[in-house]
Simulated assay, not measured.
Amino acid sequence: MHVLEISNFFIRYEMNMVLTGRLKVAEFARKQHERYWNLYLKGGGKLSQVENPMILRSGYGIADPQEKEPQIVSVCDGCDSNIVEGQGMLDWGSINLHDDSVCISKYVRKDSIKKIAGEQ
Score class of each variant (00 low, 15 high):
P65V: 04
W92L: 15
R57T: 08
Y40R: 05
V73R: 04
L4H: 06
C76D: 03
I83Q: 01
M15I: 02
V3M: 06
Q49A: 09
E34V: 05
D91F: 09
V73Q: 03
M17G: 00
C76V: 03
R35I: 00
K31W: 10
A29W: 04
W37L: 15
S105V: 00
N16Y: 06
V102M: 08
I113A: 09
N82M: 08
R22N: 15
L41D: 06
D99E: 15
Q66C: 00
Y60I: 11
E51D: 10
G93V: 06
R109K: 12
Q32V: 02
G88E: 08
G44P: 03
M1R: 09
S81L: 15
E119K: 15
L97H: 01
M1T: 11
E85C: 03
V75H: 08
Y60V: 09
N38E: 13
V18P: 00
D99A: 14
L39P: 01
F9C: 05
Y36I: 02
E69K: 10
C79V: 05
F10E: 02
L39R: 08
V75A: 02
V18I: 12
E85Q: 07
Y40V: 04
L41H: 07
G61M: 07
F10G: 02
K24G: 10
Q120F: 15
K110F: 00
K114P: 06
E5T: 14
S94I: 08
R30S: 05
C79N: 04
V108L: 14
A26L: 10
I83N: 02
R12P: 01
Y107L: 03
Q49C: 10
I104P: 02
H98P: 02
E85A: 05
G61L: 10
S81F: 13
F9E: 10
I113V: 13
P70Q: 09
L39C: 06
L47F: 08
K24H: 12
K68H: 12
D100R: 04
V84I: 13
K68G: 12
E34G: 06
L90C: 07
V3K: 01
V3E: 03
H33V: 05
S112Q: 03
